[in-house]
Design a protein around this nucleic acid. Structure first.
Lengths: 247, 247
DNA sequence: CGGAATCCGGATGGATACTG
DNA sequence: CAGTATCCATCCGGATTCCG
């Protein structure tokens, strides 16, 4: 009978927070807003979350009328109208962090090549080059564990697959970059052209493929807000006096 | 050295969520955005939160660069520029709940006369009637425990005090209403005029004071979004199959 | 009275293993 | 693929205490 542990306030902010501000919720909602509908696809967007907790959160979202569970062959989770209208909430959170936590975003602890490539794949599909033949881009990352050094994006007949093992196709373009730089490019913190000029991003391939890179490599939805001049570079800092139990 | 239990993602939404989507955080930030700066004033806005946890959250907000602690006689907590820019995040949460959780807002479990009167006082001050003499409004609530039946707003020299015990002054206006109705009025779900017409809000006092009520009784910042026609009345519902452990 | 720290029991989340 | 089951560490809520 534990009353669901709400805040017990009539304030709209409190009610919204009971759903949206639970642990992992903003990220699960982000995945749904980005279009993932299958349990395992959703899980790839929040890999550090246990599947048990993801299942529980999806149940809570159903209960709140934000998600609809459909059994159509497999199981799919779709946002309801109420769920889609959470977009502004999630968007404002992201915009705030781009402006005020710019440095923290690319802290080593937050970098994750699997996540970055999965995100890139998702945004790239919309712009998939409408070629007749297969197109393969190989990403070679530095600053990552050996097992995460290479990824392949395979464009074929309008779909884009992300491979973690060499699919064995001919490679049309090789993208060389450090994990942090590629993440910074993705977030709009570093312009592609500048990264190429100073050698932190190196493209290898036929001249045409190299120049076509910009046309299909879509950036994060927050990239436009990530350019330096928009944001005061002021670092969110710790207080002067140490308060926490430092050790 | 437990790394602060973050999400480990470079996504701006994840970083923002690490601060803003912790338990109680949206409500603490709401209080700060509303202008409370003293520990005990902040606590009055989140009375179900333990003072220990409030202190901890304020420290976390300092650490995140959102709040600045000033020791000026007493201690004051002020939002930094980064903190003030959380306004859109919190606002969108409230707007979403006004639109999609309208019914749940005034669930019995969420009604709270102390909170309502504290909120009313806060919004009323800006519009405090610029009278020369003292003005006292007595609120008589129904649907509340005996100890919460009466509150007094005392306007005097530009400040408004909220009293929980009879201050003993002459009363200029008596406001009679049920707790739920007054909350609905406050949230913009029920127009004042309609509540008066159907007798759910009764004002007693000199004719002039009765008609002046609307001029100083300010509604919640979300009241404009609370009017029925704006929002689809569709109730966020539970899924067809019972999933939670009902009992 | 304002602003906390401390202690304790129960609730929640993470890791891992397992299943239809 | 789509989740459960289990166990243990951590967090939260409530009461009490402390200090200027």
């Amino acid at each position: 009978m534990a009353e669901k542990r709400g805040y017990g306030q009539f304030c709209p902010i409190a009610l919204a927070a009971e759903v949206v501000a639970e642990r992992w919720m903003p990220l699960v909602i982000r995945e749904l807003l980005c279009g993932s509908v299958r349990f395992n696809d959703l899980h790839r967007g929040v890999p550090r979350m246990s599947s048990a907790l993801l299942a529980q959160r999806l149940r809570e979202l159903q209960f709140a009328g934000i998600v609809e569970r459909r059994t159509v062959g497999g199981v799919e989770y779709h946002l309801t109208a109420a769920g889609r209208e959470l977009y502004p909430v999630i968007e404002k959170m992201g915009l705030w962090a781009q402006r005020w936590l710019r440095r923290d975003l690319v802290d080593t602890a937050n970098l994750d090549p699997d996540l970055l490539m999965w995100d890139i794949r998702r945004n790239v599909v919309a712009r998939a080059p409408s070629r007749s033949r297969r197109f393969v881009a190989e990403f070679r990352l530095t600053g990552v564990p050996i097992s995460r050094r290479c990824y392949w994006l395979v464009f074929e007949r309008g779909v884009v697959d992300l491979c973690y093992r060499n699919p064995g196709f001919d490679v049309d373009l090789v993208v060389n970059a450090g994990l942090r730089v590629l993440t910074q490019i993705w977030l709009g913190h570093v312009p592609i052209d500048q990264a190429i000029r100073d050698g932190r991003l190196r493209l290898e391939g036929a001249r045409g493929e190299v120049s076509a890179f910009r046309s299909w490599f879509a950036l994060s939805m927050f990239a436009a807000a990530g350019r330096e001049p928009t944001a005061p570079p002021k670092r969110a800092g710790r207080p002067n006096a140490a308060v926490g139990g430092a050790s």
